[in-house]
């Protein structure tokens, strides 16, 4: 959806480069297992897709002659370090196994939970949020939110399905969207363009 917006409108207005780069970092840290484990064709294709789209978005926003001029750097002020440092520390302390790939995987789970924050802050500052941006954020939130249903199903049907780190992070991630979803639903019901209160 985001690539569609950027390519079709030649603009990344209202999109946080910080969030996009954090997602690229999330996917790099999480999908290192592409090199040493195979789960299914679907799983591999999606991992490669996420990596490719994340890097493509960052490339457009940073380097495309037209698109990069529409990036509002002054408004996208969230500091990377405030998200990366706590997540890295937490991953070093709270993990299932103290190995490089497992700690990086855990770091990616924590970082993904909060990676939307720069985007949410930017949107709060944006007067006219376009529909594609609002829909993109809604879909991103719904994506992990729907996982919760899947986790409940797997918990009930699979014997050794215990993933506390993933579950707590996923619920926290979904909760961060609660406020956004509330206003998204209000505006959708009223058939209005999304506006977030300051």
């Amino acid at each position: 959806v985001l690539l569609l917006k950027i390519r079709a409108t030649r603009s990344c207005r209202g999109i946080s480069l910080k969030t996009q780069e954090l997602y690229a970092l999330v996917f790099i840290c999480r999908y290192l297992d592409l090199f040493y484990s195979y789960i299914s064709l679907y799983n591999t294709v999606m991992k490669v897709t996420y990596l490719a789209t994340a890097f493509s978005i960052v490339r457009y926003m940073r380097f495309d002659k037209v698109v990069r001029q529409t990036y509002d750097k002054e408004q996208d002020t969230f500091r990377y370090i405030f998200l990366i440092a706590p997540c890295a520390l937490l991953a070093l302390v709270l993990n299932h196994r103290f190995s490089p790939t497992e700690v990086l995987w855990t770091f990616s789970i924590y970082l993904e939970a909060v990676a939307i924050l720069p985007q949410l802050v930017l949107m709060q500052r944006t007067q006219n949020i376009d529909n594609l941006t609002a829909n993109y954020v809604a879909l991103l939130g719904a994506y992990r939110g729907f996982y919760i249903l899947n986790w409940i199903y797997r918990f009930a049907t699979e014997k050794h399905y215990r993933q506390w780190i993933v579950w707590i992070s996923g619920v926290a991630q979904t909760a961060l969207y609660a406020d956004f979803f509330y206003y998204y639903a209000l505006c959708w019901k009223a058939n209005q363009r999304l506006q977030l209160p300051a």
Partner: peptide
């Protein structure tokens, strides 16, 4: 119980 499984989710 098997604590460490393959990370089969995305």
């Amino acid at each position: 119980a098997q604590l460490l499984q393959d990370h089969d989710e995305l």
